[in-house]
Design a binder for these strands. Sequence first.
DNA 1: CAAGGTAACCCACCTAGGGGGGTGTAGCAC
DNA 2: GTGCTACACCCCCCTAGGTGGGTTACCTTG
Lengths: 221, 221
Amino acid sequence: MAGTAPGAITVALVDDYDVVVVGVATMLEPYRDRVVVAELDTNEPVKDVVDIALYDSFAQPESDHHEVKTLIDNPHARRVVMYTANFHPDLVAMAQDLGVDGYLSKALNARELVEALESVHAGERVISTPPSKTFANSGDWPGRSEGLTHRESEILALITQGKSNAEVVALTYLKPNTVKSYIRGLYRKIDVESRTQAVLWGVRHGFLPDHRRIDHWRGGP
Amino acid sequence: MAGTAPGAITVALVDDYDVVVVGVATMLEPYRDRVVVAELDTNEPVKDVVDIALYDSFAQPESDHHEVKTLIDNPHARRVVMYTANFHPDLVAMAQDLGVDGYLSKALNARELVEALESVHAGERVISTPPSKTFANSGDWPGRSEGLTHRESEILALITQGKSNAEVVALTYLKPNTVKSYIRGLYRKIDVESRTQAVLWGVRHGFLPDHRRIDHWRGGP
DNA sequence: CAAGGTAACCCACCTAGGGGGGTGTAGCAC
DNA sequence: GTGCTACACCCCCCTAGGTGGGTTACCTTG
């Protein structure tokens, strides 16, 4: 990262997909005097202590709170903030129980996100209100340029990881029929007629995780 | 390719999988004074005229005779020989109707293969007798080192190309139940529990075609 | 304001795919 | 010979996955 602004909040983006990480980083770029993305090179072990670890929930076992727990227990991150589009009550409750310092919506625009991060940094616990608006300005995700929505991409990512419908249901907190609807929709968009073909499309379009986000937070240096 | 032996038969190996091509080439290496693999760099267009194009049927639309037709029509190959493990009567008949100069079994060992190629080169039409022995000494195929049999690999390759069971049946001239048996067997061997996971295993283990074998035979220079 | 997109959900229906067993052949190794 | 494996085939059974229709609600855009 280029010259760290003195006094700026340092943030580590935690996500398995480089596109997503880069997307959020780009979104925050204009505010680099207030928020600096310190940990972008996600394949390197965590070197320094950051002010905030921003855990992006894209295509991730959202019910798997181990990862968030790992972050919270890790002294390299002073605060831990969830950054998600999913506001299922169970998820919000779980995150708060774990002790996250923020639960921020992907519907926030860059300015709002920066403000929320500053509040968290100041010691506040910030919980976004459930969104119900689109994530048009919330970074990037694989498949976006091909016309897939955030949700569709998320589900395709899970499928491309070899997950079954039942697993996708468990991970997204959606209903089985809803998951099926999304799958059908995305099949049409990417022009395939089976799950295996969708997986192949996925691996060719960056839907395989580029790394395991949490690895370098486990057993630090 | 190293120094071409004068008088040796030149052979082009036609297959989508580099491992397979390399495997056959290695098998023929000891006989380089009699048979020289001239077209190994499969991503290059066909430069010269070869004596024989050896069409390896691994994981290929075997019913799709367009490819063989393309070879036969191409002046860069003096003779066209099928090299296959599949001796379904329809396939043999089809190949002969198309006018192939040989239909050779993968069960042949290197010496036998060389002799057969020499016979073809001399003007004979050589049709191997149905094998009913294993292909232990017939080159290489993806997944071999992981303990998959030739058939299992072939079917996994087709699945990894996004084919349905019905398509695999059509392509291999096997019965639906047989295909299912193989699939179940290979799931156990590679330790997966769904088709999508098998596809992912496949892409990670070289089951995606490295190129389209027939491309450089179409519309030559 | 209407139209269009997105999100979340619902139902009934059907078949492809996967799980469990089984048969017989042949060749290879001991 | 006995055992082992590869190959090819068979049966029944069941559920995951895929298809074709919906609904409601919200927000954005023309």
